[in-house]
Amino acid sequence: MSIQSAGLFIAFEGGDGAGKSTQAARLSETLESRGLNVLRTREPGGTPIGEKLRSLVLDHGHGTIDARTEALMFAAARAAHTHQVIRPALKNGTVVITDRYIDSSVAYQGIGRGLGAEGVSTLNHWATEGLHPDLTVLLDVDPAHGRQRRTAGDASEDRLESEPDAFHSAIRHAFLDLAEANPSRYLVLAADDDMGTLAAQILARVDSLLSELAPREHVPGGCP
């Protein structure tokens, strides 16, 4: 039985190869071990239509995808994800942890593709009916380091990952600008720090938020 009284929405953001999935999984496992209801999801994806759109927008071999079409595909997947998955889970008191959310579209399509941050933000505000995370964890990674991480071994890059370092550098600065503009919602961490240290810092911030949802003595301590 969950010990929380209200849902909590956490998004992990950052450049490709930042380690978002790893940290999202560690946080999810820790919170579940405490008895909290946790939903870990991703974007684009999280729903059947979202997963199909994910394949179309990220996999190679689907022909040319112009910037506006790309932005609309991400927004469509996010609309389904928010309406069908995230909002119902939050209503039931679940901690929702998503690998990417609106800020990725603002960074990648708004800045990286040159569509403009304001326009892409407005589109996604409409698609999600204004739902924003309680906390956004930004794992800041140098583009070259990120590429080295994601191509380790036999791993291949998807359509966005394979963009040049200049594109990924613009993405990085876009994320940092978003965090600077809204520091109360963001936790910015260096992605190349020790994984255990990162996990502990993230958990400490989440604990602070959980303490606002339930009496502190009802939220056990501990690190992953």
Rank of each mutant, 00 (worst) to 15 (best):
T64C: 11
E51H: 05
G112M: 05
H125E: 15
R54P: 05
T122Y: 14
A76T: 07
Q84Y: 03
H81Q: 11
D59L: 13
G45N: 08
G63E: 09
T69L: 13
N37T: 15
A76P: 02
D59T: 09
R68T: 09
T136A: 00
A107I: 09
I102D: 01
S55E: 15
T69A: 15
G46K: 10
R42Q: 13
I111M: 13
D140P: 10
T41Q: 02
A71C: 08
G45F: 05
L138W: 01
T128W: 00
L138M: 05
Q109L: 06
K91M: 14
P44A: 03
Q109T: 06
A11Q: 05
F9T: 10
A89Y: 04
A75E: 04
M73Q: 04
L139I: 03
A6K: 15
R42D: 04
D99M: 04
G17N: 05
V96H: 03
A67F: 14
G93E: 01
A117T: 12
I86E: 04
S28Q: 15
S21H: 06
L39N: 09
L39C: 14
V85R: 07
R87C: 07
A79K: 03
A6F: 09
I65V: 14
F9K: 03
S121Q: 14
V57N: 07
P44M: 05
A71Q: 08
T82Q: 00
L115I: 09
I49C: 07
A11N: 12
E70P: 01
T22S: 13
S28L: 09
S105W: 02
